[in-house]
Design a binder for these strands. Structure first.
Length: 346
DNA sequence: TCTGGGGTCCTAGGACCC
DNA sequence: TCTGGGGTCCTAGGACCC
């Protein structure tokens, strides 16, 4: 019996809702909506997640809280609490690291694991058991030969299941599904592919890479076909992710029109990103200002700094100067400041 | 149902240089 | 004589993901 290398994808089920229900067991079985400050009357706030009971009322992640309140006046609204989710996430990741696997963290509620075993299902079951035992959370696990296969398999395993997707069962599992079943193809790309007569995974897999490159770009076109063939990344990186940059943005419950007011908010956001950079000991190379006007039209303006820095005054001045390159005669619903970092010293 | 916040990577066009 | 070709950087926007 030969022992093989596997990629596992672990996906915590209903992560945010599950953490909240652990803290508020009395809410189990009730419609619960998490998002914003938990005030469902506040405009321009949306649900981060909703429990299965709330979903029965047509409330999903992304539903405006005011809409959720109308659909289910009896729902319980909880504020989003990122530090609590971060703590729960770290607890889960620590459990995973107790196993003989390489762990690549992928956000709060996901991880890819590299394992060498001839029985990945038994390993997956042991992982599920340990995570549940030690954190109270359930997860779905996908097993594959690469990250793409494992990621799709965990989706098929929800909730709390285990699925294996390999080159052996790829075609029978995926061939008849729409192209946006692939990880990395969304609604826009699916529509473009459909215009080329490519509706299913099998059709995309059989398409001409040169044609795809012409219509969808030199890198993306051939990459989509590669995905349709069930291929994907096979390396697990255990070193922590190094951010390329950071951003802060705010949607205001009511539009901004006063220039001093706008400038003040930009200065606040700029100070935050400069502080973020200094905390991580990173230098900023580019500053970008984002404005979303009320009809939901988004514009960005950016500039490269003469010298990399994380000096708050410089970042603040740069961001507020970018404001002069925007049309300020329209009401504004969102302001954002984003920065890019230099590569960290190795 | 008027639509969050935080990321990553790619594309296309223009500037500029040799 | 109005014209080649490549390389790189910059900018704005798009698509996707959690």
């Amino acid at each position: 019996m030969s022992t093989k290398d596997w990629i596992l994808h672990l996906d915590l089920d209903q992560f945010i809702a599950a953490v909240e229900l652990l803290r508020h067991p009395e809410l189990r079985g009730k419609p619960v909506v998490v998002g914003g400050t938990g005030d469902p009357t506040k405009p321009r706030t949306v649900a981060a997640t909703a429990t299965y009971e709330a979903r029965e009322y047509g409330i999903h992640s992304g539903t405006p809280l005011r809409t959720a309140l109308k659909r289910c006046p009896d729902a319980v609204f909880l504020p989003s609490d990122p530090p609590a989710y971060e703590a729960a996430s770290q607890h889960v990741m620590a459990v995973l690291r107790d196993f003989p696997v390489r762990v690549e963290i992928w956000g709060w509620d996901e991880a890819f694991l590299g394992a060498t075993t001839d029985d990945p299902e038994t390993l997956a079951a042991a992982l599920q058991h340990a995570v549940h035992q030690r954190t109270g959370l359930t997860c779905s696990i996908g097993i594959g030969e690469n990250k793409h296969q494992a990621k799709l398999a965990s989706g098929h395993a929800k909730p709390a299941g285990i699925r294996r997707l390999t080159s052996g069962n790829w075609a029978e599992t995926m061939n008849d599904r729409p192209t946006d079943a692939l990880w990395g193809i969304g609604p826009k790309t699916a529509r473009k592919l459909a215009q080329l007569g490519l509706h299913t995974v099998a059709q995309l897999a059989a398409a001409d890479p040169t044609d795809l490159a012409r219509h969808l770009g030199p890198t993306n076109g051939p990459w989509y076909r590669y995905l349709a063939l069930g291929k994907g990344e096979t390396t697990i990186t255990t070193t922590p992710w190094i951010a390329r940059g950071h951003s802060r943005e705010t949607t205001f419950p009511h539009d901004l029109t006063d220039k001093d007011d706008i400038t003040h908010h930009i200065a606040t956001l700029a100070t935050q990103v400069a502080h973020d950079a200094a905390t991580e000991n990173r230098q900023i190379t580019r500053v970008s200002l984002k404005i979303r006007y009320t009809p939901f039209i988004t514009r960005t303006r950016q500039t490269t700094l003469p010298t990399p820095t994380n000096d708050p005054q410089t970042i603040k001045n740069t961001a507020t100067t970018l404001l002069n390159r925007f049309d300020l005669n329209r009401p504004i619903r969102l302001l954002g400041v984003a920065v890019e970092y230099t590569k960290p010293p190795t």
